[in-house]
Each structure stands twice: as structure tokens, then as C-alpha cells.
Amino acid sequence: MSKPRDDRQKDLLLPALDQIIDMGHPLVRLAALIDWKFLDERFSSVCQGGSGQPGLPTRLVAGLFILKHMHSLSDEVLCARWIENPYYQYFCGELSFCHRLPFDRSSMTRWRQRLGEEQLVALIQESLSVAHKTGAIGPKDLERVVVDTTVQPKAVAHPTDARLMHRAIVKLVGLAKRNRVPLRQSYLR
């Protein structure tokens, strides 16, 4: 795979996104604060030169992951909102409003599998940097970090065909006894 492509340009027949949206919107202001070149440098190690179609622009991919986690969205919902929301498109670096996705939804999964620890650390670093620049967190907030790493398995009994069949037999035998229907077999264990 070669270096990510970013051949996006303004469509002469469509108005530019920065002309139709409110430039004071929180996503527009957040997009201006993020150092996209820093993320582009860190994400470039994921793409090696070679044959094949060039990857998606780094700003698009990083922007989608940021939006996904900011709003706790699934890939399907994120893609649907991206199509209808010009602020999402502006945040991800589009210049004109797009009426369809410039990528296949399965690209999200492939990018997630391809990203390593270094790229995820870069996203966290940039998130903390922006939070510090905006005053959302202060130096005192970064002195001590508490991380809960406990994993507690849940006691969930997943239904199996045998268990469901046994429950049905128990309920039907009970119903037959209440209505005094004689059974040839008791089905008791």
C-alpha cells in the first residue's frame, strides 16, 4: 500500500463547506486546534509504499475515529451521520459537501486493525494537547492518573439449543400436569 492520498479539492459546482457552515461551531473550532500534520506523520508509518490503491487521507481516518469516540457511535451510525452532517465532513477535511461516502464502510475495520500502539498513542497525545490548549484540563489534572484495569467476567448463561429445549419440556410437562393430560413419558431427570 502506498502513501495515503489526499487529492480532495473544491467542487466548482458546489459551495465550499466553510461558506455554508457556522465557523464558530465546536467541531470547526476543534478542527482548527488539532495538529493534523503531527497525526499525518505518525500515521504514515502504517502505509508502506508498493502496489495497490493509495490509502484514505489521514485526516479523514483520524477525524472519523475521533468523532466515533467523542459521540460513542458504531461504524454504521458514524457513516450515516457523516453523510448528513456538514460539520462532520468539515472536521474530517472535506472541502465541499459530499452526498456519499468517499470510502467503503469496511475501511474503518481495516484501518482499526492496521493501527498499532504508536498511532493510538499519537491520537491520545493530540487529544491531551488540545484539551490542555483549550483549558479543559490543567497541569494538575495530569500529575496523577488513575486507571482502572480490572476485568470482571460476567456470569451470563448464553442460551443453547439443549437448554432451550429442556426449558420448553419442563414448561410443557408442568402445563400437562395442571390440565391433567396423561403423558406416556414423564421426562423427569
Rank of each mutant, 00 (worst) to 15 (best):
V46T: 14
V77E: 14
P86T: 03
E118C: 07
T109V: 09
G24K: 15
Q48T: 13
L27S: 11
N85A: 07
I66V: 13
K10D: 09
V121E: 15
W36S: 05
L30R: 03
Q119P: 02
L101R: 09
Y88A: 03
L14A: 12
L13R: 05
I83Y: 04
S72C: 10
R8G: 12
E84F: 12
D104K: 12
P15D: 03
P15I: 05
G24I: 00
Q9N: 09
C98Y: 15
Q48H: 14
I21N: 04
C79V: 10
L123F: 05
W36R: 02
R110N: 10
L73G: 06
R100E: 09
D40Q: 05
T58I: 10
P102R: 03
L64D: 02
E41I: 07
W111V: 00
T58Y: 01
L27C: 10
R105Y: 02
C79N: 04
C92L: 06
N85T: 12
I66P: 03
R81G: 12
P26R: 10
F91K: 03
F38N: 10
D75E: 06
R105F: 05
C47Y: 15
L101N: 12
Q89I: 08
K68C: 10
C98I: 09
P54W: 08
I20L: 01
M70S: 11
G93E: 04
G49A: 14
C98M: 13
L14M: 14
E41T: 09
Q119D: 01
L115V: 09
D11A: 08
L123P: 07
A62N: 03
L17I: 09
E117H: 03
Q53A: 12
Q48F: 11
S74G: 10
L64V: 00
A32H: 12
W111T: 02
G50Y: 11
P54I: 05
L30C: 10
S74A: 07
L64W: 00
D18F: 03
Q53T: 13
D22P: 10
R112G: 13
G116L: 06
D40T: 12
F43T: 06
G55P: 06
Y90N: 04
P57A: 06
Q113C: 08
H69I: 00
S72I: 05
L95A: 13
K37Q: 14
E94L: 10
E84G: 15
R100D: 14
L101E: 12
